[in-house]
């Protein structure tokens, strides 16, 4: 039982770091945002594991629901009118699109 919980901790911790890193470093901005939403979901599990049900509830609504909606809405806004479209990210700022 303890071994199983330890394994769960290991998986949760590793996926937090992995998802956080890839949210920052994937080239595609949309993929980064989606990974951040997944990061929020894993975070909610971690709060439950750390005996913080109050925070887990808030994180499930905020981290997974609201932040995701905000990010995707903002991405749409960038995609419509912006200088850096989601797919182009870092290098897109060098020249204006036609």
């Amino acid at each position: 039982m303890n071994l199983l919980l330890g394994l769960a901790d290991l998986v949760l911790g590793a996926s937090l770091i992995g998802l956080g890193w890839s949210a920052l470093c994937t080239r595609d901005l949309f993929a980064g945002c989606v990974r951040f939403i997944a990061f929020g979901l894993v975070m909610a599990l971690v709060w439950a594991r750390l005996r913080a049900p109050d925070i887990a509830l808030a994180e499930a609504a905020i981290g997974a629901g609201l932040t995701g909606a905000l990010l995707l809405a903002a991405l749409r806004g960038i995609g419509v009118s912006g200088w850096a479209r989601p797919g182009e990210d870092r290098d897109a700022t060098e020249e204006p699109r036609p």
Binding site: A69, L70, A74, G77, S81
Partner: peptide, 12 residues
């Protein structure tokens, strides 16, 4: 959220 949606949809 409405603000973000609106700021993104502005100027269309």
């Amino acid at each position: 959220f409405a603000c973000v949606l609106n700021a993104g949809g502005n100027g269309k």
